[in-house]
Every structure is written in structure tokens, then in C-alpha cells.
């Protein structure tokens, strides 16, 4: 019996230590910091204040929050609009081809994400590949502004996060009962109606899973807005980064982080409510 207990400790000890030391304590410390005061050049004063949270609701910062939520939302929607038809169209293929094609989706993501983002600079800039090709073929006469603006950021986000939408939606679509779709079609339902009444309800947790895995990182990926936005567009990720690495206002940076965690928890709660499973998140 004693030996039994020993084995149990062996199996459980690491995860308890880990989850306290590397998850709980850091988060509690950030929560603590978010109620601290800050002197102008980055010293922390351990006095209770709510001002960091009030500052978030300041017009300036609220605009940044809204703007980055909007950028993330657009990126999420585009990802969903690509992933649904893609997954449904894939169902025409044989199982072997399908599994090969899905593996192919992952290949680009085995190279470094920064080098891929850099690839987009080469493509999108004023005299880059796309503009040169369009001008060369006479489609446009003046180069388009494809980057150093919101468009560039959205392209970068969609590109980097697309597989996180494709995989859960594909897995939901492939598990769907296809006879229902056929039945609906036989009854004369339009394509849109089939999608809305049959496909969407049975894949909703896959869609929500993908949306979570696209939307949440898209708020924080400061390097994409840095590189493809030309340092002109600040998203929440940049704001937090600046508070920690430039402005040295850790308490304010912590408050924004706690705010983000709360939003995340809310979204996860919603996801669970519609029947999503936690273990499906972030799995491949």
C-alpha cells in the first residue's frame, strides 16, 4: 500500500510543482503587479491602486483595444471563409489524397514564422513581386499599398494562423454525417441553406475552436504588426510589449494582460457552453 502511494506521488508531483511554479504563481504575480503604482521611469511602488485598470478605459487605449480586436476579428473571419469551402471541397477527394493534402497544409508551418513573414515583405512591398507582376502585365499602372498598413497586418495574421482554423474545421467537417447534406439537397434546399441549417450546426464547435486559436494569438502577435505594419499600427501585443520593454510601466502592462486573460476566459466559457472540449484546443 505504501509503495502504491509512492508511485502516485511520482506521477503527480511534477505536474503539481509545474502548474504552481510556472503557471499559477506567475499569473498571481502579474495580478498583484496590476494593482501596483508605477513611478515615471519604471520603478514599482507597492501601493494599492486601481488606476491601471481605469487607464485601460482611457479613450486612447480603448481605441487601440478596439482596433486590434477588429483586426483580429477580420483575420478570424477571413480564415473561416477560407477554411469552410476548403474543407468541404476536400471531401470530394479520396481518403488517401485528403490525408496527404492536410499534411501539406502543415508544411509551411515547419519553417520559421518570421522568415515566412519576411517572405511576405518581398511579395508585398512597393516594388515587390506582386506589384511588379501586376504592373508588368498591365493590370495596374501605379503600385498598390499592400503593406505598412492594416491590410499588410491582416494578410500576415491570416497567413500565420490559417492552419489553426483549417485543422479543427476540417476535422469537424470530415466527422459530419453526410447523408444529412444529401437529404437536404434532395429536398431542394439551396447551397446557403444547406450550409446554414445542416453543416454549420454540426461543425460549430470546430469553428469556435478555430476562431479561438486564431483570434487570441492575433491580438498578441506584435511581431507581425511590427514587420508588416511598419511600426505605424499598434495592437494590444505592441502595447503590452512597450509597457514591459520600453515605457517600463509594468503595472499598466500587467493590467492589460489581466484584461486579456479575462476576455480569453470568457471566450473559453462560451466555447465550452456550445459543447467544445478543452482537449481539442491547440491539438493537431
Amino acid at each position: 500500500m505504501k509503495k502504491n502511494k509512492l508511485f502516485q506521488y511520482f506521477l503527480l508531483f511534477p505536474v503539481i510543482i509545474y502548474s504552481f511554479l510556472l503557471i499559477l504563481i506567475p499569473l498571481i504575480y502579474v495580478l498583484f503587479l496590476s494593482f501596483c503604482k508605477n513611478d515615471s521611469y519604471g520603478g514599482m511602488i507597492y501601493e494599492f491602486t486601481l488606476s491601471n485598470y481605469l487607464t485601460i478605459f482611457d479613450f486612447t487605449y480603448m481605441m487601440i483595444l478596439l482596433k486590434s480586436a477588429l483586426i483580429a476579428l477580420i483575420a478570424t473571419l477571413i480564415c473561416a471563409f477560407i477554411s469552410y469551402p476548403f474543407s468541404i471541397f476536400l471531401m470530394d477527394k479520396s481518403e488517401r489524397t485528403r490525408s496527404f493534402l492536410i499534411k501539406l497544409v502543415m508544411i509551411p508551418f515547419l519553417t520559421n514564422s518570421l522568415i515566412r513573414t519576411y517572405g511576405w515583405i518581398v511579395l508585398l512591398r512597393k516594388n515587390g513581386v506582386i506589384n511588379s507582376a501586376l504592373i508588368g502585365t498591365g493590370i495596374i499602372s501605379k503600385p498598390l499599398s499592400l503593406m505598412y498598413n492594416n491590410l499588410g497586418i491582416i494578410i500576415g495574421m491570416v497567413y500565420t494562423l490559417l492552419p489553426f482554423m483549417i485543422l479543427p474545421i476540417y476535422s469537424a467537417v470530415s466527422k459530419m454525417d453526410y447523408s444529412l447534406v444529401e437529404a437536404a439537397k434532395d429536398l431542394g434546399a439551396s447551397k446557403w441553406k444547406v450550409f446554414k441549417e445542416v453543416i454549420l450546426p454540426s461543425t460549430i464547435s470546430g469553428l469556435f475552436n478555430g476562431s479561438l486559436m486564431v483570434f487570441i494569438p492575433a491580438i498578441g502577435y506584435f511581431f507581425i504588426s511590427d514587420i508588416l505594419g511598419g511600426g505605424k499600427v499598434m495592437i494590444i501585443g505592441n502595447l503590452i510589449k512597450n509597457q514591459f520593454l520600453t515605457a517600463r510601466n509594468w503595472p499598466f502592462g500587467s493590467a492589460i494582460s489581466i484584461f486579456l486573460i479575462l476576455i480569453t476566459f470568457l471566450l473559453v466559457k462560451l466555447y465550452k457552453k456550445i459543447g467544445g472540449k478543452m482537449d481539442d484546443l491547440g491539438g493537431f
Binding site: S40, T60, G231, K232, V233, N238, A247
Partner: peptide, 15 residues
């Protein structure tokens, strides 16, 4: 000195 926080905020507003 402490006026730096005015600059910080102005900068965030511009971006």
C-alpha cells in the same frame, strides 16, 4: 523627469 508619462501617452495616441 516625470513629464515622460505625458510623452508616453501622446505617443500611444499617435500610433
Amino acid at each position: 523627469g516625470e513629464h515622460i508619462s505625458d510623452y508616453d501617452k501622446l505617443w500611444a495616441r499617435i500610433k
